[in-house]
Nucleic acid binder design. Sequence first.
DNA 1: CTTGTTACTTGCAAAAAGCAAGTCACATGC
DNA 2: GCATGTGACTTGCTTTTTGCAAGTAACAAG
Lengths: 129, 129
Amino acid sequence: MKKANLENPCPEGYRSTCPIANVLDIVGDKWTLLVVRDLLLSGKHRYGEFQSSPEAIPTNILADRLKRLEAAGLVKKEFYQDNPPRAEYFITRKGADLGPVLQAMGDWGQKYIPGVILPQQFRLPEIRN
Amino acid sequence: MKKANLENPCPEGYRSTCPIANVLDIVGDKWTLLVVRDLLLSGKHRYGEFQSSPEAIPTNILADRLKRLEAAGLVKKEFYQDNPPRAEYFITRKGADLGPVLQAMGDWGQKYIPGVILPQQFRLPEIRN
DNA sequence: CTTGTTACTTGCAAAAAGCAAGTCACATGC
DNA sequence: GCATGTGACTTGCTTTTTGCAAGTAACAAG
């Protein structure tokens, strides 16, 4: 089979000009959106809080995802002490705007996956840019 | 750090009772939702059509994702000839209901990722159950 | 001064992704 | 008839990403 996109003109490094593909390059894995969920819906801000979510994200993956989310501008890292360095993570406006994606996933899950229950309470996210 | 969920009671094999986590277990990767997009938005039905999308999905990944989507009930496989076996793939109602997730991703991508453009035309999907 | 806590990093094995090439059953052209 | 092409995959192999366990650094508490 020949190459599908001989010369498909998209910005450097992009898989395509499709917005969905590009969003998936940022949040297309099993963990990233769970961190966003914790930031956005559960009001979590610290490393240990993310780890305490029921999915028990591995610690190296969490560190990696926070780094990527920060690099992508979805999360703002703020140090609250210097020594040892301790930080809190806040969702940005850009990150908070993924809310409808989480909402749509939540709705679908509730409709089609038996046994799931929505997180106890939604909080309004604290946004920092 | 100790285990976060000592005895978190969720259906066997589930990471948690969160609908978002469970949705991510089905579509949480860089390719699955692109196949859904092609089925839902572009009216594609055959193997070669999926391959011809600009992201150029590797052939073994495509075969795997179609298998998983079928197993999850998001896609229906229908043979249109026996020898050699040739099939077409159709989105089910369950799969089509992921539309809002794609929509939300598309909106976010359009807003925050410079240079992306929406696929030329949306078609109404042909749903088979 | 021993133990605990928080926020990580490192090492390594296992799983998944990505690429090229191969296969099978025809259809088409000469 | 026979070489070439096409559609839908599968196989093999290398690279990358996951996932788990363990280690580390800087304190704080008992």
